[in-house]
Design a protein around this nucleic acid. Sequence first.
DNA 1: CCGCCTGCGTAGACAGCGTCTACTACCTTC
DNA 2: GAAGGTAGTAGACGCTGTCTACGCAGGCGG
Lengths: 194, 194
Amino acid sequence: MSEETAGVRARLVAAGVELVLHEGQSAVSLREIARRAGVSHGAPRRYFPTHVDLLSAIAREGFADLAARVDATMRDAGPAPRARLAALGRTYLDFAATHRGMFELMFRHDLLDSGRLRLRETSLPLFAVVADLVAQVRRPTDAPAPVLAGALWANLHGIAQLWAWGSLPLATGAADDDALLRAALDAHLGPLPS
Amino acid sequence: MSEETAGVRARLVAAGVELVLHEGQSAVSLREIARRAGVSHGAPRRYFPTHVDLLSAIAREGFADLAARVDATMRDAGPAPRARLAALGRTYLDFAATHRGMFELMFRHDLLDSGRLRLRETSLPLFAVVADLVAQVRRPTDAPAPVLAGALWANLHGIAQLWAWGSLPLATGAADDDALLRAALDAHLGPLPS
DNA sequence: CCGCCTGCGTAGACAGCGTCTACTACCTTC
DNA sequence: GAAGGTAGTAGACGCTGTCTACGCAGGCGG
């Protein structure tokens, strides 16, 4: 399906994805998206009642992309749950670093508050993967599996967030975020059995 | 110093703080702040070259508020480093939950990117408190102190972030964020010696 | 005391934004 | 061929941030 033959709705979302990836979150205005898609500024309204609806559709593309990467990671990673979690964390942090604008858009509070992005369809599947793996490596003295998984996910998310704008590298003096990822995994799951 | 006698600059910042606390981040437009401060929409430009500069000044108030709360917590908490870290985490999460709009504003990427909010004056002092306490409870097998502190801080921040929009409560089934805070502290610092 | 200058705040213009409302082609279906 | 519905256009509205010109006050040198 080429750019020209694709429907206007798909072209709008594609243009928005392109924009947020290359120009950042502030560039994703309704009119600019419409221009890039080659339609008038009123056209999006036919498919998306408001700007927020269009942004939500773009963010869903981001979640789909992330989910695909996680799936690929889970396919390629070895069988050991601990190693799979490490690979998953690496994928998550990589995605946040290389798709910063999209990552910000995906977790914008006003989109989530609006109810257009339902967690059940976006971040929850990702969490389920984490929770499943965590349950396999959880030690008896650890917190209940959902809580442990939530804490670990929050840690990954926080590293991605704080790392992205240079606070953590400045504070920790680390050269990359690998040290933080390892520290988080070791903390929540115990040191890697080598 | 009353509202009337205060300088325009201070009134603008105060009005912005009030707005972001009560109406949320989207309400902090330059013109609305000027209206609330009782000046024309052109007046802010005399003190803040751009809207972002004004927002940064407002965010700095937020960081000052948070720092004051952390100081108070450190004053009231007992001497044990582990308990002090728990109290600090509680304060951080409380602040994020009760000052959501301000918390979002404080960590807006475009403000940090613009260079108006220097980390050295905002989040770094907070991190120093965490790092100092972490260094006191760090076990020999743990990651280096700065890394450990960074990972813990990222965990707190991630919990605040993900909790705020209902993702973690939905996923973990926890009734409040206390379980996640305890899990994070236990994970990074070892279980609480009771 | 007068004139001038500088600093503070006002007011209007401008382009861009999201939203709303005609209006116009076009495609279907009788 | 006429009628009806759909998809996209075009313009208006009020809002935004920024820029510029103007007025008005107080302080200072003559």
